[in-house]
Design a protein around this nucleic acid. Structure first.
Lengths: 329, 329
DNA sequence: TTATGTAGAACAACCGGTTGCACATTGGGG
DNA sequence: CCCCAATGTGCAACCGGTTGTTCTACATAA
């Protein structure tokens, strides 16, 4: 049978209250008693019931992590990395992470978790324009934070400096003598796509050039057009394919290779990594690394601090790191 | 302010008990009252507090899903697919899914969730030999189930028929005239690797042949030897590379391509898919599909039924599905 | 000596549900 | 007409913690 505060109190000849205070360290209690209690609970390996504690303290010690239900997107390694960051940091706060599958086709799981009060706060790991998820959260009164700038006034978010990073990437390529580039991106309704696209254009402007709009291809994740898009880009004189994420880059590399097009001899290639999917690819891929794990941790940290009364809204992590590798030699 | 059974009871001139029964449908209650209560709670959008319910009923309505903390492994799309299956099915039972990162380097998160009683049951999504995770679960008294046969007496599991499937794959290839194959596999301590390896060997035996042990390469996930292993296989006369999962297959394809080796002209290639990572690859990849989502759902279902008093131990899903595609033409 | 202060511990209410049991009402059978 | 069973509802305990308030004992100040 499981121990309770009551059973422990009885055993030690104390009251429930005193035992509780000895454990939590709150309230007046003698050093001697505290020690005695803590030694005893260690001995019997007692841990307070999270549920009972939740009911009393009105905190669940759970956060919800909303992940795309769409399997094609959900399978992006990026979400795993983010999740790891969230979980690791949650552990430090004695929190656990509830997975919530949701997207514009259904937010039942989110509704369930929020209205049954199973979570104290929500992290949204991806966000589309005018997202059902966000609209729901706006109306509920649960604290939440979005990964990636949702471009929506009043919605708190944490983001990498996607725009700055993309811009820097382009400038770096231009400095290396590459001026004509094609851009392969994901869903245009996704916030990350938007930011990186802005940065892409800005990079050219900063160098006194202009991005060729005809070489910008979005919504390419599920597209069957990859092959023709790449051929078209090459025909149009693109020297380098810039991919918006590592899944896309993997597809592009595969597609190029299959057509007998060598990287970097025939065309150069670079990407934004959020995972280690490409870490062993041949050739090695020039890319811009973000620390997605850190980002996940940051989300959690902000929520925790807000639960403790602060009111942090949004935050941008400005560190990133460009690795020039074989694919742009 | 949030509603409670008490506030609703007062509002309707009933008792807490009656309202509770009207909602749960348990116990004696008149149809009329039930209707009245349910209409009212719908109107005010009341949902019972999961925490309070948990305390009273001694169920958390949460299951833990143990996912590898090792990011290289955790990022495998397979886990996302599995997770989706678990979550979808959990929803049907009004359960939520707690993510628990753990592996042989640390089971702190698992300890935390179990000993604080935040979950009713555990699903282990991957399992190594003599795993700390399993040893811990064996000693605790929480119901659990492992994905993939752990080859450990008394440990309940759910699995695809990996052995049968691998065997069939080999037989199919042999029927197509391919008799000399190299096997590229993941960690040899992983249960899935073991089962598929057994099937691989058995497939040859079933056709009166024998697998060439010198062409079996395991532990290739993080290996830098991929390039030399592939070249060696080709030099040894392998006609086909059989990969144990889609991450490996992706690496292999990439590696071959980069060396200017064409698939299927120079060498054939096939894989086991658990995700859609390769769904758009060029060439299209011959592979054996398992329904990882279904497997996840099955785990959950078994745990739920066991919590309800049944005592199902292990189960093998025998359906799979071989798709012959361009890579083995 | 009495009033005041303080530390340590206990009492009891509370969080919001579930559930065994008691009570009241009603209807049918003998 | 009475008794018993079935039905509908309410009371109160309980789940296992947290916390505001009270109580006791002892030390110090007036």
């Amino acid at each position: 049978m499981s121990h309770t505060l009551d059973s422990i109190a009885k055993e030690l000849g104390l009251s429930k209250t005193t035992v509780s205070r000895a454990i939590s360290g709150k309230g007046r209690i003698s050093e001697e008693t505290r020690k005695k209690v803590n030694e005893y609970i260690k001995e019997i390996n007692y841990r307070p019931s999270a549920v009972a504690r939740s009911l009393a303290s009105n905190r669940t010690y759970n956060v919800g992590l909303v992940v795309p239900a769409d399997s094609a997107l959900g399978e992006m390694p990026y979400f795993q990395t983010l999740m790891t960051g969230v979980c690791d940091r949650a552990m430090e706060f004695e929190y656990d992470v509830l997975i919530i599958l949701a997207d514009n086709d259904g937010i039942a799981a989110l509704r369930h978790a929020v209205s049954n009060r199973k979570i104290d706060a929500v992290i949204v790991s991806r966000c589309e324009r005018d997202s059902k998820v966000i609209n729901f959260l706006k109306e509920s009164d649960i604290p939440y934070i979005v990964v990636g700038n949702p471009m929506d006034e009043g919605v708190p978010y944490v983001d990498h400096d996607n725009e700055g990073a993309a811009s820097r990437m382009i400038e770096t390529l231009i400095d290396a003598g590459i001026t004509r580039m094609a851009l392969i991106g994901g869903g245009e309704n996704i916030n990350v796509t938007h930011s990186r696209l802005e940065g892409f254009k800005k990079g050219f402007i900063n160098k006194g050039l202009k991005a060729d709009e005809s070489l910008i291809f979005l919504n390419m994740h599920k597209s069957a057009r990859m092959d023709s898009v790449l051929k078209e880009s090459i025909a149009e004189g693109a020297e380098c394919i810039v991919c918006m994420d590592d899944m896309l880059c993997n597809s592009v590399l595969n597609c190029l290779h299959n057509d007998g097009i060598s990287v970097p001899e025939d065309i150069k290639l670079c990407s934004f990594y959020d995972s280690n999917l490409l870490s062993t690819s041949k050739p090695s891929i020039t890319s811009l690394y973000f620390d997605a794990k850190k980002l996940g941790g940051q989300c959690l940290e902000i929520l925790m601090r807000n639960l403790d009364g602060e009111s942090i809204t949004s935050q941008t992590l400005t560190d990133f790191n460009i690795q020039m590798r074989d694919s742009t030699l």
